[in-house]
């Protein structure tokens, strides 16, 4: 399942993003053990040094913890998950607003169209 990587971003941070997303979606649980560097490298078809960097970066962000001789685990702090979700949410909304503005919508129009879309999808479900 070696996934495709986008060209614009270092591979190590793309894998980090992927792990964060899985964590926020609940596919990875707090305290869950991550695959070893080597396993993860094989799964994603990348150089193990890249995974090493990914785990290092995640640890720096406080998303994972490395326990000596045991491996790398997702953090057990619940606030972290909320914070990460908030970060992703913020990032997505900012990107959305930016692209709406770029096609010429003003803030009111953006608000209205989002509102309508939400009502419609409520109706359908």
């Amino acid at each position: 399942m070696s996934a495709e990587f986008k060209t614009s971003k270092p591979i190590y941070s793309q894998i980090a993003d992927r792990i964060i997303q899985q964590f926020v979606r609940g596919e990875l649980h707090p305290g869950e053990k991550l695959p070893s560097v080597r396993e993860m490298a094989i799964q994603s078809g990348v150089n193990p040094n890249t995974i090493q960097r990914t785990y290092g970066e995640l640890e720096r962000l406080g998303v994972v913890e490395t326990k000596r001789g045991q491996g790398t685990f997702m953090t057990e702090q619940n606030e972290m998950k909320l914070k990460l979700r908030h970060d992703i949410q913020k990032e997505m909304i900012e990107a959305f607003i930016e692209s709406m503005r770029s096609i010429g919508l003003n803030d009111h129009e953006i608000y209205e169209s989002v509102n309508q879309s939400l009502k419609r999808s409520d109706h359908e479900s």
Binding site: F5, T7, S8, K9, P10, I11, Y12, T50, R53
Partner: peptide
Amino acid sequence: VEEVREKDGLSVLE
């Protein structure tokens, strides 16, 4: 390889 992605936003192919 990673530097090219990070600094130039390019894949090695590009």
